[in-house]
Design a protein around this nucleic acid. Structure first.
Length: 424
DNA sequence: GATCCACAGGAAATAGTGGCTT
DNA sequence: AAGCCACTATTTCCTGTGGATC
């Protein structure tokens, strides 16, 4: 009986034969490794990664002007306005804000008679309540001193007082940047307290301004009116990038991060067009470009073609789904699986009641007590918000009543793959 | 125009986690 | 160790709602 040997097993056997057969001196010389020679297309990989911060901001001149206008008071030595920045993900809000903060700190240093400026940034995605964000702010402010960081367990007022103390100790202008501020939901406490710290006498020697960054414009309307007025003294809107702007950005990144001759002419325009049509996000466009290059590299080719972009689209989408599935609670995942199962057997759109039955089976498969219907409702709602599901409002009146039907809004196969990795 | 279906989703209560203070 | 405190995920109970039907 003969077994078909894999490519790598054959190589391994050959190596052993050559070495133990005495043909070569060392193991290394006999070795033919599974690693291939491949041509390096990147000159700097970081430039195309998510966390890369561009040193130059492109195609956002108008927004930078508006920003500078809003913060001019700081440079002139006045109490600054609070700023509310909004726009979808990947349109440069955070990058421009960081750039402005650096510029501001520098400018304040240069000018005579202007107080020092300090900026602290906290991402509310990781600290999704006023309380937690306040703690993070204190720790951020303490990070360049030798004071111990705060942990949870303190009462709200203790945390606030600690925060005011830190701000006061700076004796200058403190700009508090709250990124992804919509994650605070309707928890106003911090947003209410900070702008009023001065009038309430919590702070005397320093000045505070809040810069709120939000993906979601409706967040502004959810705030209580009092907070809305103070927080949104200045509003700066970041529109999505159009295809031309994305071409500029991608061209710049390609020049910094790739060898000169690796992209076919159509690649950058195609990435730009796809991203512009979808969300107008620079991050998305750059992800596409990077993955397209990776596809070519893995294939051992030296030139990136437009077909590689098509493959990249699928990969990026898959990665996105995988990441957000990871963030779901286990029961959120089961509910999603239930919908996926029904979608595969062609039973969607389905109403919550039907889905609940399938969900119970899924939970049983994972030896988990099923949650109540009410909770599954909430999970279905969450999944719709996150873009996994689409909700259809149905109303058949007296005979049928009002209810929702749900269907999958992403590729069923991708969900199954991602879930398989997740629950292994 | 009143009625009523079949839910959606709000409110309050509960259980459980993790960490600080005394 | 006991007592707080904040926070999350969940359950139970219950009110609200749009529009087809009476």
């Amino acid at each position: 009986m003969s077994v078909e040997l894999s490519e790598h097993t054959k190589l391994w056997k050959q190596k052993n034969q050559r070495y133990y057969g005495g043909g070569v001196e060392t193991m290394a010389a006999a070795m033919k490794t599974p690693f291939r020679d491949r041509v390096e297309l990147f000159t700097n990989k970081d430039v195309l990664k998510d966390h890369y911060e561009p040193e130059e901001i492109l195609e956002r001149d108008e927004e930078i002007d508006q920003y500078a206008n809003a913060l001019q008071d700081v440079v002139d030595g006045w109490e600054p306005d609070n700023v509310f920045v909004y726009g979808k993900t990947g349109v440069g809000k955070t990058a421009v804000t960081r750039y402005m903060m650096d510029a501001l700190e520098f400018e304040a240093e240069e000018r005579e008679g202007v107080d020092d400026v300090v900026s602290v940034e906290v991402n509310c995605h990781h600290h999704p309540s006023s309380y937690q964000a306040a703690i993070a702010l204190v720790n951020e402010l303490r990070s360049d001193t030798d004071r111990d960081p705060l942990t949870t367990g303190l009462s709200t007022s203790d945390v606030l007082n600690a925060l005011f103390d830190e701000i006061e100790a700076r004796e200058g202008t403190v700009l508090i940047v709250l990124d992804e501020i919509d994650n605070l939901g309707d928890d106003d406490m911090l947003l209410y307290q900070l702008p009023r710290a001065k009038t309430n006498g919590n702070i005397e020697d320093s000045q505070v301004a809040v810069v709120g960054i939000s993906n979601d414009y409706t967040f502004r309307n959810d705030l209580s009116p009092k907070v809305q007025d103070t927080l949104c003294e200045r509003e700066i809107k970041f529109p999505p990038y159009d295809a031309n702007e994305l071409v500029t950005i991608l061209t710049d990144r390609a020049e910094r991060g790739l060898r000169g001759d690796v992209l076919e002419d159509g690649v950058i325009p195609q990435c730009a067009a796809l991203a512009a049509r979808d969300r107008g996000s620079a991050r998305q466009a750059i992800d596409l470009l990077r993955e397209a290059v990776n596809v070519a590299v893995e294939d051992g080719r030296e030139v990136v073609s437009e077909e590689d972009v098509d493959t990249a689209v699928e990969r990026v989408e898959r990665g996105r789904i995988k990441d957000s599935i990871k963030d779901l609670t286990t029961h959120g995942q089961y509910v999603l699986l239930a919908v996926t199962e029904m979608a595969v057997s062609g039973e969607t759109p389905a109403r919550a009641k039907e889905l609940y039955g399938v969900y119970e089976e899924v939970a049983a498969e994972y030896a988990s007590e099923p949650l109540s219907q009410r909770s599954v409702h909430d999970h279905l709602n969450d999944l719709s918000m996150l873009g996994f599901l689409r909700q259809h409002d149905r109303n058949y009146g007296r005979g049928g009543g009002q209810f929702f039907e749900y269907e999958l809004d992403v590729d069923a196969q991708m969900v199954e793959e991602a879930m398989a990795d997740e629950t292994e």
